[in-house]
């Protein structure tokens, strides 16, 4: 496809062609804007309804721009959601786990992408199985295992023989998130490893081979050659991992006993608003403003994160080569 610049460099375009180009541009903008409107509508709706005071929220004449602004909704929902505490616990469990996962998945994927070894085909098939089987299938046995942490039944056997129980109870601690992430088996790790593998396979091998021959160990080539040239894919994986962890509520509901992350709060926000004495019924629409405000507060942190990285993310996504 010849792009705009090359066409320009060839020479002046005929008038008819120019008109057609303008028409295409207008049409493209029209379609993209109108579908984009649907995409961002909920966001606008959340912002508008959480900022409007009760009177202007209930006023049918005022749809988008509230007549009078208020921050009351935010203050109210901050208390209802116990936002500060929930936010900190999200950082501690989910975000730390997300970052661990970014590192451990890279290591595993490098092994898959760069080295030939017996059983690689079988292990790759297992990797696909982990993508296919969703976490709810595994959650109950995992909870059992975390409540008496054991490696292949050794400590259990030890317990039966001597009566000394060395098995730790990890339920309710952040280790239930950190430990699987450390071994590249956390939340949706399969997909992250797959993205890494596709990228590593596309990296030129010569540089690493040269380092190899000069006596660098594979660990060294990984750290000082592969990782520095993979900033694009690391960013992509970080975005996915952070977002998925931020939105995870199921694992947290099952593993944690208190200090729930924000997503859990968000999942039961209807009940929380009800406890606070406001009932979400169709004839009392003011509850809706609180609900929307809660949603907005929940997505603000990932939204800010996205706005910070979106410049690189949006630019680089087509260089990751996820599709191989």
């Amino acid at each position: 496809m010849l792009n705009q610049e090359t066409v320009k460099s060839i020479g002046r375009k005929p008038a008819a062609k120019k008109g057609k180009a303008v028409l295409t541009a207008v049409l493209r903008w029209f379609i993209l804007l109108s579908i984009g409107y649907i995409v961002v509508y909920p966001l606008f709706y959340m912002i508008s309804s959480s900022l409007s005071s009760r009177e202007s929220f209930l006023d049918p004449n005022c749809v988008w721009i509230p007549k009078s602004l208020t921050t009351y909704n935010f203050k109210f929902m901050w208390g209802v959601m116990d936002y500060g505490k929930a936010f900190l616990s999200t950082i501690k469990t989910e975000m730390v786990s997300a970052l661990i996962e970014v590192a451990s998945c890279a290591i595993a994927a490098y092994g898959f992408a760069r080295f030939k070894f017996r059983g690689r085909g079988f292990l790759t098939a297992c990797l696909f199985l982990t993508i296919l089987i969703p976490s709810p299938m595994l959650i109950v046995p995992l909870m059992n295992n975390f409540s008496h942490l054991d490696v292949l039944g050794i400590f259990g056997l030890f317990n039966k023989l001597t009566g000394i129980d060395l098995r730790l109870n990890l339920l309710g601690t952040s280790w239930t998130f950190w430990l699987p992430s450390l071994f590249a088996s956390g939340l949706k790790s399969g997909i992250l490893i797959y993205i890494y593998i596709q990228f590593f396979k596309g990296l030129p091998y010569e540089l690493e081979e040269a380092a190899w021959i000069d006596g660098a160990t594979p660990l060294r080539t990984f750290v000082s050659i592969a990782v520095p040239s993979s900033s694009v894919v690391i960013l992509t994986v970080t975005v996915f991992s952070v977002i998925w962890h931020w939105n995870d509520y199921f694992l947290a509901t099952m593993y944690m006993e208190k200090d729930y992350p924000l997503a859990v709060t968000m999942n039961k926000i209807n009940d929380l608003i009800n406890y606070a004495g406001i009932y979400l019924t169709p004839d009392k629409p003011e509850g809706l403003a609180y609900l929307m405000c809660g949603c907005l507060m929940f997505i603000i942190p990932p939204l800010v994160f996205y706005l910070i990285v979106q410049h690189w993310f949006v630019e680089s996504i087509d260089r990751v080569g996820i599709t191989g």
Binding site: S104, C105, I107, A108, Y110, G111, F112, R114, F115, K116, F117, R120, L123, L127, F183, A184, S185, S189, I193, P218, F222
Partner: peptide, 8 residues
């Protein structure tokens, strides 16, 4: 290769 993959 096994060393890298073993973590997973």
């Amino acid at each position: 290769g096994y060393m890298f993959v073993s973590i997973w």
